[in-house]
């Protein structure tokens, strides 16, 4: 069964006001196209969760989508602060839930595995438990010391951007795998957005690259350049110029409003965004070539025959 739909329909169907949301991608493959569509549709009161909120959640916060942000690292990597989120927190308009990277990914994994909690020993002796009520301690039943635990996370919906997917949602990616598998399995509903839609045969030719099987996926959206200004390994590079520009722009609420108007609201959809940024996206796509050696899986029939 095909789950292919437009980004507009995927957001319309799967993102409700007030939902908890995880857009995956650890620097690599951040689902910006999904974020822009959520902004375009004017969702409000979202509880945003990411290890690094990154510019993607700064953008959504500036656009007024968020009521809470949960994070491990609140910064624009290498460039300082996320100004829109900082301002909203300081104004009392945005709740924040602090994690560490390890405890946030452990909470997601516990959510996806339906565990009652996950041990996070690294936060013992830190002040995290004082500021995050989702972190508690128990005495280890195997002797020894108190062990901090984190409550599982089950986001209402996750958007997971990948290199390629078939129409059913068998999703494959390569390069930095980040948090996408944990986000995809933890969330109650999952939208895969893919640079390329391929046939099931292509997926079956290389099962080792599958990160989410179709049974974990509710919707599939074709979104080439859907990670821009983040990147897709081997397809296009990270738009560091955009991240640097954001670092300046986001200091000024009025400039941000203009930016969101021009880049999101004035454009009907992601296709229009790609058209608008065609020159820059083509530039970022000149990544050269370094293909992997093909690997051999063997044919099913012949492998079975030689085993008998």
């Amino acid at each position: 069964m095909t789950k292919l739909m437009t980004m507009r329909d995927a957001v319309g169907e799967h993102v409700d006001d007030g939902a908890s949301l995880y857009i995956s991608g650890f620097t690599h493959l951040i689902g910006f196209a999904a974020a822009r569509e959520i902004i375009r549709q004017g969702r409000r009161g979202l509880r945003l969760i990411r290890m690094t909120p990154d510019v993607v959640y700064d953008l959504m916060t500036a656009a007024g989508c968020a009521r809470e942000v949960a994070f491990g690292y609140l910064g624009n990597p290498g460039l300082g602060s996320l100004h829109a989120i900082r301002r909203a927190i300081e104004a009392g308009d945005l709740d924040h839930v602090e994690y560490t990277h390890g405890s946030l990914i452990a909470a997601l994994r516990a959510g996806g595995s339906d565990l009652p909690f996950a041990p996070v020993p690294a936060v013992a002796g830190t002040d995290l438990a004082e500021v995050n009520p989702r972190v508690r301690r128990v005495r280890s039943p195997f002797g020894g010391e108190d062990v901090p635990l984190v409550e599982p996370l089950r986001p209402d919906v996750a958007f997971v951007h990948v290199h390629r997917s078939d129409p059913q949602g068998n999703a494959q990616t390569w390069g930095g795998l980040g948090d996408l598998k944990e986000a995809g399995f933890a969330a109650r509903r999952v939208v895969v957005t893919a640079e390329e839609i391929v046939s099931e045969d292509v997926i079956r030719s290389d099962p080792g690259r599958t990160v989410l099987p179709a049974f974990a996926v509710d919707a599939v959206v074709h979104a080439p350049y859907g990670a821009h200004p983040s990147f897709a390994q081997g397809l296009y590079g990270r738009d560091n110029r955009y991240y640097r520009r954001w670092a300046e722009l986001s200091r000024d609420p009025r400039a941000l409003e203009e930016h969101i108007g021009a880049e999101v609201h004035d454009l009907p959809d992601h296709e229009a965004y790609v058209a608008r940024h065609g020159v820059r996206l083509r530039e970022l796509s000149r990544v050269g070539s370094s293909p992997s050696e093909p690997v051999e899986y063997g044919s099913n029939r012949e492998t079975a025959a030689v085993q008998d």
Binding site: F26, G178, D179, G237, R238
Partner: peptide, 27 residues
Amino acid sequence: LSIGDPTLVAQALGTMSVADMFDLVIG
């Protein structure tokens, strides 16, 4: 510029998920 740049992955010896990095490598 970031710890996830493409230049850190192309021609690397391996890539793993962040969960595996935290649990198996760092932890």
